Amino acid sequence: EPLWIRPDAPSRCTWQLGRPASESPHHHTAPAKSPKILPDILKKIGDTPMVRINKIGKKFGLKCELLAKCEFFNAGGSVKDRISLRMIEDAERDGTLKPGDTIIEPTSGNTGIGLALAAAVRGYRCIIVMPEKMSSEKVDVLRALGAEIVRTPTNARFDSPESHVGVAWRLKNEIPNSHILDQYRNASNPLAHYDTTADEILQQCDGKLDMLVASVGTGGTITGIARKLKEKCPGCRIIGVDPEGSILAEPEELNQTEQTTYEVEGIGYDFIPTVLDRTVVDKWFKSNDEEAFTFARMLIAQEGLLCGGSAGSTVAVAVKAAQELQEGQRCVVILPDSVRNYMTKFLSDRWMLQKGFLKEEDLTEKKPWWWHLRVQELGLSAPLTVLPTITCGHTIEILREKGFDQAPVVDEAGVILGMVTLGNMLSSLLAGKVQPSDQVGKVIYKQFKQIRLTDTLGRLSHILEMDHFALVVHEQIQYHSTGKSSQRQMVFGVVTAIDLLNFVAAQERDQK
């Protein structure tokens, strides 16, 4: 057995438009009618409502009807409940999964919650491996369901041993009777949507819809739904939504950006999952974080739909894509998950301010006199920076000697690579993860907040409520011999709460 199987392995699926269902090699399930009293909570997966979006479509000038398939009504709160249950049931049916076995899954959280929910009911041990950027709410729900959680670096490539995929496979090879159901490759993922989600949409719309818009992560949702719609409703256009920084969209030119990270969760990847059939997507749109969270908040405030950030991405694209539809036509959007997962993220004004998705003037509360002053007023001194090749031991000596707790790590040209902190280095040394002679590049981390000289002290204040420091950066445009230009970030300084307090105190003292 291989040590790991690539999540982007070539698909062996034989589905073709027009091929009889009787030739399918898979076990198919028909939607079942729910009894009045459910035998367990797993029976509350599927049969989610279709809700008309009344205000947002009109606000953006849509002539067509805009409908939302509300997947956050599933038992675990997301569309991923469907595939989690289906993968477990299919693994039980073919004898792969037996009582007492362990389920391991690399996930952005929602599939993990679905699997942990099913594992709690069915009696399996469950280990979820997820990147650090995923919300604390997801972690809390997983723990409450009895799952064990392993976190991995957000910026690790999918084929790196440190990625959530790599760590999951390492655990599988170490733990007896453990299984990775593997949402990236498992046919049960798109089949769950082909058999149930798509049929529900067709039934709820009486077979009449002209466009379907869905955000894409593993691709199982859009693949399964689109294949069924292509068979039953061939005139329906399928629109895929991919965040900026991901590479799922086609044509490839759409993916060209210097951005590699994004805040919206559960969609987009740096590889093409095996289950994603991009041939059934008629057109791709890219979405960005700001519009995703703005539209998610709009869905909550104006439509009462308590959905997550990827739902915002989907609707932001839908109001663009559906401009081509006329009166009497219908566009369906998939709202994948609930706001429950993001209470401390985009639902929080403070978080939105820190990330730059909300401006101070958007909030009406009274601010102190210094709130709208610029960061450049602080008069920061030149920063202490270190090269990635310097040793951890030497870096600790320098920081202690100069009285700093942290320093930016830059390359020879001064471009920011990340940050090192005294606390992080000492804990890594004590844990045996690094040696004093190791290069400081081994303990770089990139989960820090950046701020510009033109940003306000109010925004800085919000950042420092949650973080010990902020890195002050400025952009530099560099022209190359080819005539092309590129933008790079340079370090201007490091600012802490002490710097802000000293500035405010000094100004008030001078005024007296």
Rank of each mutant, 00 (worst) to 15 (best):
E244W: 02
E250H: 10
L254G: 01
N255G: 06
N255V: 04
Q256A: 15
V264G: 00
F271T: 00
P273H: 06
D282P: 07
W284T: 01
W284C: 00
S287L: 15
F293S: 02
T294Y: 13
F295S: 15
F295P: 09
A296D: 04
E303C: 03
L305A: 00
A311V: 06
G312K: 01
S313Q: 07
S313M: 04
S313H: 04
T314D: 02
A318K: 01
V319Y: 08
K320C: 08
A322P: 01
Q323E: 12
Q323W: 13
E324F: 15
E324D: 14
Q326G: 12
Q326R: 13
R330G: 02
C331F: 01
I334L: 08
I334K: 05
L335I: 02
S338M: 03
V339C: 06
R340Y: 04
N341E: 03
Y342C: 00
M343A: 03
L347P: 03
S348W: 05
W351C: 04
Q354G: 04
F357N: 03
L358P: 09
E360M: 10
E361S: 14
K367V: 13
L380Y: 09
P383I: 09
P383S: 14
V386C: 14
P388S: 14
I396P: 08
I396R: 05
R400E: 09
D405G: 06
Q406F: 04
A407Y: 09
V409Y: 08
E412N: 08
G414L: 09
I416K: 02
G418Q: 07
V420T: 13
N424A: 13
M425F: 11
M425E: 05
S427G: 14
S427W: 08
L430S: 14
K433M: 13
V434H: 10
V434P: 13
S437I: 12
S437D: 01
S437V: 15
I444H: 11
K446Q: 11
Q450S: 14
D455K: 04
T456K: 15
T456H: 11
L457K: 03
G458P: 07
R459Y: 10
S461M: 14
L471N: 13
V472D: 03
H474Y: 15
Q476W: 01
Q476V: 08
Y479T: 14
G483Y: 13
F492I: 14
T496Q: 13
D499S: 03
D499M: 00
F503M: 13
